[in-house]
Design a protein around this nucleic acid. Structure first.
Length: 480
RNA sequence: GUCCCCAUCGUCUAGAGGCCUAGGACACCUCCCUUUCACGGAGGCGACCGGGGUUCGAAUCCCCGUGGGGACGCCA
């Protein structure tokens, strides 16, 4: 009952307002899985509502932002196919505008200079921690009616703080988590401009979300605590408050938080490991969002189905096994051309040069149902282009003296047999019958000799692709 | 410490007070298919954190615990 109406975008705002969402990463590292999902959801929401998706690079932390990271984020977005209608905008290029707004706030009295030194603030924090209260600025430079401020010290450069309301609560209806209410008393007067004059994150976000006309802010859970501050600033500026949707975090396979030290990887690493973007996207879409029992769907379908009402508010644990399963599915579905190109590259990385025969497309057709990743696929077909390394245990088990006569006979037959699967199969069967063996008694040694291991697709099919000469050569070379 | 958030099979989830003897998917197990391994098919195992309320009726609403997470920067 409570949840049904407020979250319904259609009925509320979008009648005469275009949806505008944004993804606003800070370029301090690669695009990781959590960021990718945030981007995906923002993107899908915009697509669903025929709105705009904007990319904004939040690079105001000059010390930690790098051009490489910007590029890594762009690459990740591109690999996933998350295209944007506007941007990338760079906050560092909007400095003039931020400064104008700060001046306006100063003039209007919603911001003020504070001359506390970092040391002073540090000491304050420590005392408060010891007293068991939430550490926050005590407002000592906050202008108040009837309050006499001390004379500004000469040696401390001023920062600018936002004059946050002292009373009341900030309440918003989070599109994922429902109503969230935070008392203004919990909030302090945050710094909006550093001593060097550069604006800070929370302030830039406010100005940008406002001026870029963002209607729904879809972002990570870790920003919940920033939201009331941002809403207060938005109000002070007379801006329209966007709707907020806070996505819970993604935990690693082990249930632990992903961090640079632990488990967080670039989405591009999934490319390296042989995952298709379709699989990663589909997996991410289902992580924290659902549409009934639907598990496998493409992005077009996703964009039609996507909404914010079916996002889980709780954290989700990443499950590589399920990603692998989806990936296997998309490999089976992938076009032959695509796979040939991709696998050729992966084989090249393994130092394997693909030749005209055996035909790689045919080889892939034989193997693509068995692979969970493109790397597995590439690895599994190496022996078509290179002599296999024979697995010792398999050789000992299957290349026994007792099957030697049968193998000898087989080579005689193979010289003249018609080189196609059915005929080869018959030839194998004949030998099996003649020597009174079971089929595997012949097939298994052949597998080991031809592929190096005891598992392969139907052995006659393998032989067809390998070619008569190569088959004969490998049987001849086999040691047993 | 303070504030905020979260809680259904091992994992991702369905679930909007009766359709729930709690559904689906991954994983796992069994069987079938079979030329080995896969693929595929058919079954199986397996959960509402605990306690109180509200109600004729609670996985669902409320409260309290407990557990987990996040935030408390001149980082974003």
């Amino acid at each position: 009952m409570i949840k049904c109406c407020p979250n319904n975008i259609d009925s509320k705002k979008s009648i005469n307002m275009t949806v505008r969402t944004r993804f606003a990463p800070s370029p301090t590292g690669f695009l990781h899985i959590g960021g990718a999902r945030t981007a995906l959801f923002s993107w899908a929401f915009a697509k669903k509502h025929k709105g705009d998706f904007i990319l904004r690079i939040e690079d105001t932390d000059v010390a930690r932002s790098t051009p490489e990271a910007v590029q890594a984020i762009l690459d990740g977005m591109h690999w996933l196919g998350l295209d944007y209608n506007e941007g990338p905008f760079y906050q560092m290029q909007r400095m003039d505008r931020y400064k104008e707004v700060i001046q306006k706030m100063l003039d209007e009295g919603s911001a003020y200079y504070c001359y506390c030194s970092k040391e002073e603030l540090e000491a304050l924090r420590e005392t408060q921690m010891q007293q068991g209260v939430k550490p926050r600025y005590d407002g000592r430079w906050r202008p108040e009616e009837g309050k006499v401020l001390p004379a500004p010290p000469q040696d401390v450069p001023a920062v600018i703080r936002f004059k946050n309301p002292k009373d009341g609560d900030v309440v918003w209806n989070d599109l994922v988590k429902g109503e969230i209410s935070i008392a203004n008393q919990e909030l302090d007067d945050l710094i909006i401009a550093r001593a060097d004059g550069t604006p800070t994150y929370n302030f830039c976000v406010v100005v940008d979300d406002w001026e870029m006309g963002i209607t729904q802010v879809i972002r990570g859970d870790d920003h919940v605590n920033n939201t009331p501050r941002q809403i207060n600033m938005l109000k002070a500026l007379g801006a329209t408050i966007p709707q907020y949707a806070h996505l819970s975090m993604i935990l690693g396979d082990d249930g632990q938080k992903l961090s640079k030290r632990h488990g967080a990887v670039s989405v591009m690493q999934y490319d390296d490991e042989g995952y298709l973007p379709e699989a990663v996207l589909n997996y991410l879409a289902r992580l924290g969002w659902s549409h009934g029992d639907e598990e496998v769907f493409g992005m077009q379908q996703f964009c039609e189905w996507f909404d914010l009402d079916h996002i889980t508010p709780s954290a989700a644990q990443f499950n590589t096994e399920k990603l692998r399963w989806l990936n296997a599915h998309y490999i089976k579905q992938a076009s032959s051309d695509y796979l040939v190109n991709d696998v050729t590259k992966r084989l090249a990385k393994l130092g394997v040069q693909v030749t005209v025969t055996p035909n790689l497309a045919a080889v892939i057709d034989l193997y693509k149902e068995r692979a969970h990743t493109l790397n597995e696929l590439a690895n599994s077909v190496v022996y078509f282009y290179q002599k296999p390394l024979v697995d010792q245990a398999a050789a000992e088990k299957h290349l026994t003296a007792e099957i030697k006569p049968a193998m000898q006979k087989l080579t005689d037959v193979l010289v003249s047999v018609e080189w196609q699967a059915e005929a080869i199969h018959h030839a194998l069967n004949d030998v099996v019958t003649e020597f009174q063996l079971k089929f595997p008694k012949v097939a298994m040694p052949l597998r080991v000799m031809l592929t190096g291991i005891a598992q392969s697709p139907s052995i006659d099919q393998v032989m067809v692709l390998l070619g008569r000469d190569e088959v004969m050569a490998r049987i001849k070379d086999a040691k047993f």
